[in-house]
Amino acid sequence: MLASPPHGTTGRTQNDMRISRAFFGAAAFLAAAFGSGLTLAADTPLAYPHRVVTLVTHSSPGGGSDVFLRDLVRHLRKHIDATFIVENVSGGSGTRALARVANASPDGSVLYATTPTYILTSLLSQAENSYDDLEPLVNFFTDSEIVYTRADGPFMTLRDVIDHARAGRGRWGAANPASLERQAAEQLKRAAWVDAAVVSHEGGGDLMINVLNGTLDIGVGEIGETRAQLEAGQIRILAVFNPHRMAAFPDVPTVQEYGYDVVMEKFRGLAGPKGLPPEIIAIWNEAAQRLLADPEYVASYEAENLFANFQSHDDYAPFIAEFAGDTEGFLRETGVIP
Protein backbone atom coordinates (compact mmCIF):
# COMPACT_ATOMS: atom_id res chain seq x y z
CA MET A 1 0.00 0.00 0.00
CA LEU A 2 2.70 2.46 0.98
CA ALA A 3 4.78 1.64 -2.06
CA SER A 4 2.16 2.74 -4.56
CA PRO A 5 -0.11 5.32 -2.96
CA PRO A 6 -1.73 6.76 -6.11
CA HIS A 7 -2.83 3.41 -7.39
CA GLY A 8 -4.14 2.29 -4.06
CA THR A 9 -6.09 5.49 -3.54
CA THR A 10 -7.98 5.29 -6.79
CA GLY A 11 -8.80 1.67 -6.17
CA ARG A 12 -10.29 2.53 -2.83
CA THR A 13 -12.46 5.34 -4.17
CA GLN A 14 -13.97 3.08 -6.76
CA ASN A 15 -14.74 0.47 -4.20
CA ASP A 16 -16.26 2.98 -1.87
CA MET A 17 -18.64 4.16 -4.55
CA ARG A 18 -19.69 0.68 -5.39
CA ILE A 19 -20.32 -0.20 -1.77
CA SER A 20 -22.29 2.88 -0.89
CA ARG A 21 -24.52 2.25 -3.85
CA ALA A 22 -24.89 -1.38 -2.89
CA PHE A 23 -25.99 -0.53 0.62
CA PHE A 24 -28.82 1.79 -0.17
CA GLY A 25 -31.25 -1.09 0.03
CA ALA A 26 -31.56 -4.00 2.40
CA ALA A 27 -28.21 -5.70 2.66
CA ALA A 28 -29.57 -9.21 2.70
CA PHE A 29 -31.63 -8.69 -0.42
CA LEU A 30 -28.69 -7.23 -2.26
CA ALA A 31 -26.43 -10.04 -1.20
CA ALA A 32 -28.62 -12.29 -3.28
CA ALA A 33 -29.42 -9.89 -6.11
CA PHE A 34 -25.98 -8.46 -6.81
CA GLY A 35 -24.03 -11.38 -5.46
CA SER A 36 -21.09 -10.96 -7.79
CA GLY A 37 -20.76 -7.20 -7.41
CA LEU A 38 -20.86 -7.41 -3.67
CA THR A 39 -18.31 -10.18 -3.55
CA LEU A 40 -15.90 -8.02 -5.45
CA ALA A 41 -16.48 -5.14 -3.03
CA ALA A 42 -16.30 -7.31 0.03
CA ASP A 43 -13.07 -8.87 -1.19
CA THR A 44 -11.32 -5.55 -0.77
CA PRO A 45 -11.13 -4.54 2.87
CA LEU A 46 -11.76 -0.90 3.74
CA ALA A 47 -8.61 1.06 4.46
CA TYR A 48 -8.06 2.02 8.09
CA PRO A 49 -5.68 4.62 9.49
CA HIS A 50 -4.24 2.17 12.04
CA ARG A 51 -2.36 -1.04 11.45
CA VAL A 52 -3.36 -2.50 14.80
CA VAL A 53 -6.70 -1.99 16.49
CA THR A 54 -7.22 -3.11 20.08
CA LEU A 55 -10.70 -4.25 21.04
CA VAL A 56 -11.07 -4.12 24.82
CA THR A 57 -13.53 -6.11 26.88
CA HIS A 58 -14.22 -6.44 30.59
CA SER A 59 -15.08 -10.06 29.93
CA SER A 60 -12.53 -12.72 30.82
CA PRO A 61 -11.40 -15.13 28.10
CA GLY A 62 -14.34 -17.33 27.20
CA GLY A 63 -16.93 -14.93 28.62
CA GLY A 64 -19.83 -13.50 26.60
CA SER A 65 -18.17 -10.41 25.16
CA ASP A 66 -14.89 -12.21 24.65
CA VAL A 67 -16.52 -14.87 22.50
CA PHE A 68 -18.42 -12.14 20.61
CA LEU A 69 -15.23 -10.19 19.90
CA ARG A 70 -13.18 -13.16 18.84
CA ASP A 71 -15.79 -14.30 16.40
CA LEU A 72 -16.17 -10.73 15.15
CA VAL A 73 -12.43 -10.36 14.65
CA ARG A 74 -12.24 -13.57 12.66
CA HIS A 75 -14.60 -12.14 10.04
CA LEU A 76 -13.75 -8.46 10.39
CA ARG A 77 -10.34 -8.95 8.77
CA LYS A 78 -12.05 -9.39 5.44
CA HIS A 79 -13.75 -6.01 5.69
CA ILE A 80 -11.31 -3.66 7.40
CA ASP A 81 -7.66 -3.58 6.50
CA ALA A 82 -6.15 -3.78 9.98
CA THR A 83 -5.04 -6.33 12.54
CA PHE A 84 -7.46 -6.68 15.41
CA ILE A 85 -6.38 -7.69 18.88
CA VAL A 86 -8.75 -8.62 21.67
CA GLU A 87 -7.58 -7.38 25.06
CA ASN A 88 -9.26 -8.72 28.20
CA VAL A 89 -9.06 -6.13 30.96
CA SER A 90 -10.57 -7.81 33.98
CA GLY A 91 -11.01 -6.56 37.50
CA GLY A 92 -12.91 -3.80 39.25
CA SER A 93 -16.20 -5.28 37.99
CA GLY A 94 -15.46 -3.97 34.52
CA THR A 95 -14.45 -0.46 35.55
CA ARG A 96 -10.83 -1.06 34.67
CA ALA A 97 -11.74 -1.90 31.10
CA LEU A 98 -13.82 1.28 30.91
CA ALA A 99 -10.92 3.34 32.23
CA ARG A 100 -8.54 1.72 29.75
CA VAL A 101 -10.69 2.83 26.80
CA ALA A 102 -11.81 6.19 28.19
CA ASN A 103 -8.18 7.24 28.62
CA ALA A 104 -6.98 5.98 25.25
CA SER A 105 -6.48 8.40 22.39
CA PRO A 106 -9.77 8.87 20.48
CA ASP A 107 -8.37 7.92 17.09
CA GLY A 108 -10.08 4.61 16.52
CA SER A 109 -7.14 2.46 17.58
CA VAL A 110 -8.75 1.37 20.84
CA LEU A 111 -12.40 0.33 20.99
CA TYR A 112 -14.63 -1.30 23.56
CA ALA A 113 -17.23 -4.08 23.28
CA THR A 114 -20.49 -2.69 24.64
CA THR A 115 -23.18 -4.64 26.48
CA PRO A 116 -25.65 -3.45 29.11
CA THR A 117 -23.00 -4.43 31.66
CA TYR A 118 -20.97 -1.33 30.98
CA ILE A 119 -23.95 0.86 31.78
CA LEU A 120 -24.78 -1.11 34.91
CA THR A 121 -21.19 -1.09 36.11
CA SER A 122 -20.93 2.66 35.61
CA LEU A 123 -24.12 3.24 37.55
CA LEU A 124 -23.24 0.88 40.38
CA SER A 125 -19.68 2.00 41.00
CA GLN A 126 -18.40 5.44 41.66
CA ALA A 127 -15.51 4.83 39.34
CA GLU A 128 -13.74 7.77 37.72
CA ASN A 129 -14.75 6.74 34.22
CA SER A 130 -18.30 5.87 33.28
CA TYR A 131 -20.23 5.05 30.13
CA ASP A 132 -20.50 8.80 29.63
CA ASP A 133 -16.79 8.96 28.81
CA LEU A 134 -17.24 6.60 25.88
CA GLU A 135 -18.74 7.35 22.52
CA PRO A 136 -21.07 4.66 21.16
CA LEU A 137 -19.82 3.71 17.69
CA VAL A 138 -22.06 1.11 16.05
CA ASN A 139 -24.33 -1.67 17.24
CA PHE A 140 -24.20 -5.17 15.79
CA PHE A 141 -26.64 -7.40 17.62
CA THR A 142 -29.46 -7.86 20.02
CA ASP A 143 -29.02 -10.86 22.27
CA SER A 144 -32.38 -12.44 22.98
CA GLU A 145 -33.54 -12.38 26.61
CA ILE A 146 -35.99 -15.21 27.15
CA VAL A 147 -38.36 -16.60 29.76
CA TYR A 148 -37.85 -20.34 30.16
CA THR A 149 -39.11 -23.16 32.31
CA ARG A 150 -38.26 -26.84 32.73
CA ALA A 151 -39.67 -29.04 29.98
CA ASP A 152 -41.38 -31.46 32.37
CA GLY A 153 -42.85 -28.66 34.48
CA PRO A 154 -46.47 -27.55 34.67
CA PHE A 155 -46.12 -24.27 32.75
CA MET A 156 -46.96 -24.34 29.05
CA THR A 157 -47.26 -20.60 28.39
CA LEU A 158 -46.30 -17.36 30.04
CA ARG A 159 -49.97 -16.97 30.89
CA ASP A 160 -49.79 -20.11 33.10
CA VAL A 161 -46.83 -18.61 34.96
CA ILE A 162 -48.63 -15.33 35.54
CA ASP A 163 -51.82 -17.09 36.64
CA HIS A 164 -49.84 -19.21 39.06
CA ALA A 165 -48.22 -16.12 40.52
CA ARG A 166 -51.60 -14.41 40.78
CA ALA A 167 -53.16 -17.37 42.60
CA GLY A 168 -50.37 -17.67 45.13
CA ARG A 169 -46.81 -16.50 44.85
CA GLY A 170 -44.50 -16.94 41.91
CA ARG A 171 -40.84 -17.89 42.13
CA TRP A 172 -38.87 -16.29 39.33
CA GLY A 173 -35.13 -16.28 38.82
CA ALA A 174 -32.57 -13.98 37.25
CA ALA A 175 -28.85 -14.62 36.77
CA ASN A 176 -27.32 -11.65 38.61
CA PRO A 177 -28.54 -9.03 41.08
CA ALA A 178 -27.70 -6.03 38.93
CA SER A 179 -28.55 -7.29 35.48
CA LEU A 180 -30.84 -6.70 32.57
CA GLU A 181 -32.47 -10.06 33.37
CA ARG A 182 -33.48 -8.98 36.86
CA GLN A 183 -34.73 -5.70 35.47
CA ALA A 184 -36.83 -7.65 32.94
CA ALA A 185 -38.30 -9.92 35.62
CA GLU A 186 -39.10 -7.01 37.96
CA GLN A 187 -40.76 -5.06 35.17
CA LEU A 188 -42.80 -8.05 34.05
CA LYS A 189 -43.92 -8.59 37.64
CA ARG A 190 -45.04 -4.99 37.84
CA ALA A 191 -46.71 -4.99 34.43
CA ALA A 192 -48.67 -8.13 35.30
CA TRP A 193 -49.59 -6.93 38.81
CA VAL A 194 -48.62 -10.22 40.48
CA ASP A 195 -46.66 -11.26 43.53
CA ALA A 196 -43.49 -13.07 42.63
CA ALA A 197 -40.17 -13.50 44.38
CA VAL A 198 -37.47 -12.39 41.94
CA VAL A 199 -34.45 -14.39 43.05
CA SER A 200 -31.06 -13.29 41.81
CA HIS A 201 -28.18 -15.74 41.45
CA GLU A 202 -24.45 -15.83 40.91
CA GLY A 203 -24.50 -16.48 37.21
CA GLY A 204 -26.56 -18.35 34.67
CA GLY A 205 -25.43 -21.82 35.81
CA ASP A 206 -26.80 -21.43 39.32
CA LEU A 207 -30.05 -20.15 37.90
CA MET A 208 -30.38 -23.04 35.45
CA ILE A 209 -30.03 -25.63 38.22
CA ASN A 210 -32.80 -24.01 40.21
CA VAL A 211 -35.09 -23.94 37.19
CA LEU A 212 -34.32 -27.57 36.31
CA ASN A 213 -34.90 -28.87 39.84
CA GLY A 214 -38.17 -27.02 40.18
CA THR A 215 -37.11 -24.52 42.84
CA LEU A 216 -38.13 -21.76 40.45
CA ASP A 217 -41.14 -21.47 38.14
CA ILE A 218 -39.20 -19.65 35.45
CA GLY A 219 -35.81 -18.23 34.73
CA VAL A 220 -35.04 -15.10 32.74
CA GLY A 221 -31.80 -15.34 30.82
CA GLU A 222 -29.88 -14.88 27.62
CA ILE A 223 -30.74 -17.51 25.08
CA GLY A 224 -27.04 -18.23 24.52
CA GLU A 225 -26.64 -19.39 28.11
CA THR A 226 -29.44 -21.92 27.74
CA ARG A 227 -28.38 -23.52 24.49
CA ALA A 228 -27.19 -26.80 26.00
CA GLN A 229 -30.46 -27.40 27.86
CA LEU A 230 -32.51 -26.20 24.92
CA GLU A 231 -30.91 -28.64 22.53
CA ALA A 232 -31.24 -31.45 25.05
CA GLY A 233 -34.95 -30.70 25.38
CA GLN A 234 -34.70 -30.00 29.11
CA ILE A 235 -36.23 -26.55 28.99
CA ARG A 236 -39.04 -24.80 27.16
CA ILE A 237 -38.99 -21.17 26.02
CA LEU A 238 -42.18 -19.39 27.03
CA ALA A 239 -41.58 -15.88 25.76
CA VAL A 240 -38.94 -13.48 24.53
CA PHE A 241 -38.34 -9.91 25.69
CA ASN A 242 -37.28 -8.77 22.20
CA PRO A 243 -39.57 -6.40 20.31
CA HIS A 244 -39.96 -9.09 17.61
CA ARG A 245 -40.15 -12.87 17.61
CA MET A 246 -36.87 -14.76 17.14
CA ALA A 247 -36.19 -16.11 13.66
CA ALA A 248 -35.06 -19.48 15.02
CA PHE A 249 -38.15 -19.83 17.25
CA PRO A 250 -41.05 -18.33 15.31
CA ASP A 251 -43.61 -19.97 17.62
CA VAL A 252 -42.34 -18.27 20.76
CA PRO A 253 -44.40 -15.12 21.40
CA THR A 254 -42.91 -11.88 22.68
CA VAL A 255 -43.77 -10.67 26.14
CA GLN A 256 -45.49 -7.72 24.50
CA GLU A 257 -47.82 -10.05 22.63
CA TYR A 258 -49.07 -11.28 25.98
CA GLY A 259 -50.12 -7.74 26.69
CA TYR A 260 -47.28 -6.72 29.01
CA ASP A 261 -45.41 -3.70 27.77
CA VAL A 262 -41.92 -4.87 28.66
CA VAL A 263 -39.17 -4.87 26.04
CA MET A 264 -35.51 -5.62 26.73
CA GLU A 265 -32.73 -5.37 24.21
CA LYS A 266 -29.39 -6.73 25.22
CA PHE A 267 -27.25 -4.85 22.77
CA ARG A 268 -23.81 -5.83 21.53
CA GLY A 269 -21.75 -3.26 19.71
CA LEU A 270 -18.63 -1.12 19.90
CA ALA A 271 -17.74 2.17 21.53
CA GLY A 272 -14.60 4.29 21.60
CA PRO A 273 -13.14 7.12 23.63
CA LYS A 274 -15.11 10.39 23.43
CA GLY A 275 -14.33 12.41 20.30
CA LEU A 276 -13.85 9.78 17.61
CA PRO A 277 -13.08 11.43 14.24
CA PRO A 278 -15.90 11.34 11.64
CA GLU A 279 -13.85 9.32 9.12
CA ILE A 280 -13.44 6.50 11.66
CA ILE A 281 -17.15 6.53 12.35
CA ALA A 282 -17.86 6.40 8.61
CA ILE A 283 -15.60 3.38 8.13
CA TRP A 284 -17.28 1.48 10.93
CA ASN A 285 -20.78 2.38 9.80
CA GLU A 286 -19.96 0.82 6.49
CA ALA A 287 -17.90 -2.12 7.68
CA ALA A 288 -20.51 -3.15 10.23
CA GLN A 289 -23.17 -3.41 7.54
CA ARG A 290 -20.87 -5.33 5.22
CA LEU A 291 -19.93 -7.67 8.03
CA LEU A 292 -23.50 -8.39 9.09
CA ALA A 293 -24.28 -9.38 5.50
CA ASP A 294 -21.22 -11.61 5.14
CA PRO A 295 -22.72 -15.09 4.60
CA GLU A 296 -20.03 -16.84 6.67
CA TYR A 297 -20.59 -14.50 9.57
CA VAL A 298 -24.35 -14.78 9.22
CA ALA A 299 -24.11 -18.55 9.60
CA SER A 300 -21.90 -18.13 12.63
CA TYR A 301 -24.01 -15.59 14.53
CA GLU A 302 -27.34 -17.15 13.68
CA ALA A 303 -26.12 -20.35 15.27
CA GLU A 304 -25.61 -18.30 18.46
CA ASN A 305 -29.18 -16.92 18.17
CA LEU A 306 -27.82 -13.41 17.86
CA PHE A 307 -30.22 -11.06 16.16
CA ALA A 308 -28.52 -8.68 13.70
CA ASN A 309 -29.53 -5.19 14.74
CA PHE A 310 -27.33 -2.66 13.00
CA GLN A 311 -27.41 0.82 14.43
CA SER A 312 -25.23 3.53 12.96
CA HIS A 313 -23.39 5.94 15.21
CA ASP A 314 -26.18 8.50 14.84
CA ASP A 315 -28.80 6.10 16.19
CA TYR A 316 -26.64 4.29 18.66
CA ALA A 317 -25.65 7.22 20.86
CA PRO A 318 -29.24 8.30 21.63
CA PHE A 319 -30.22 4.66 22.11
CA ILE A 320 -27.49 4.15 24.72
CA ALA A 321 -28.41 7.38 26.46
CA GLU A 322 -32.04 6.31 26.70
CA PHE A 323 -31.09 2.84 27.85
CA ALA A 324 -28.88 4.29 30.57
CA GLY A 325 -31.70 6.55 31.72
CA ASP A 326 -34.13 3.62 32.00
CA THR A 327 -31.61 1.49 33.82
CA GLU A 328 -30.78 4.23 36.27
CA GLY A 329 -34.48 4.65 36.99
CA PHE A 330 -34.82 0.92 37.61
CA LEU A 331 -31.82 0.80 39.96
CA ARG A 332 -33.19 3.73 41.96
CA GLU A 333 -36.67 2.24 42.21
CA THR A 334 -35.34 -1.07 43.46
CA GLY A 335 -33.14 0.68 45.98
CA VAL A 336 -29.87 -0.59 44.56
CA ILE A 337 -28.47 2.92 44.26
CA PRO A 338 -29.58 5.91 46.33
Binding site: S60, P61, G62, G63, D66, V67, R70, G205, D206, M208, I209, L212, R227, A228, Q229, E231, A232
Partner: peptide
Protein backbone atom coordinates in the same frame (compact mmCIF):
# COMPACT_ATOMS: atom_id res chain seq x y z
CA UNK B 1 -25.41 -29.64 31.68
CA UNK B 2 -22.96 -26.98 30.62
CA UNK B 3 -23.04 -25.69 34.20
CA UNK B 4 -19.59 -24.89 35.54
CA UNK B 5 -19.07 -26.07 39.13
CA UNK B 6 -16.14 -23.76 39.85
CA UNK B 7 -14.23 -20.83 38.42
CA UNK B 8 -11.84 -23.27 36.79
CA UNK B 9 -14.69 -25.19 35.21
CA UNK B 10 -16.01 -21.87 33.94
CA UNK B 11 -12.73 -21.24 32.12
CA UNK B 12 -12.98 -24.71 30.64
CA UNK B 13 -16.53 -23.88 29.53
CA UNK B 14 -15.12 -20.81 27.82
CA UNK B 15 -12.60 -23.04 26.07
CA UNK B 16 -15.37 -25.33 24.85
CA UNK B 17 -17.47 -22.42 23.59
CA UNK B 18 -14.57 -20.78 21.79
CA UNK B 19 -14.15 -23.98 19.83
CA UNK B 20 -17.84 -24.13 19.05
CA UNK B 21 -18.47 -27.09 21.35
CA UNK B 22 -21.65 -26.97 23.35
CA UNK B 23 -21.56 -28.95 26.58
CA UNK B 24 -24.59 -31.08 27.29
CA UNK B 25 -25.83 -34.54 26.47
CA UNK B 26 -25.26 -34.01 22.77
Amino acid sequence: FGIPGSNSAAVLLGGLLIHGLLPGPR
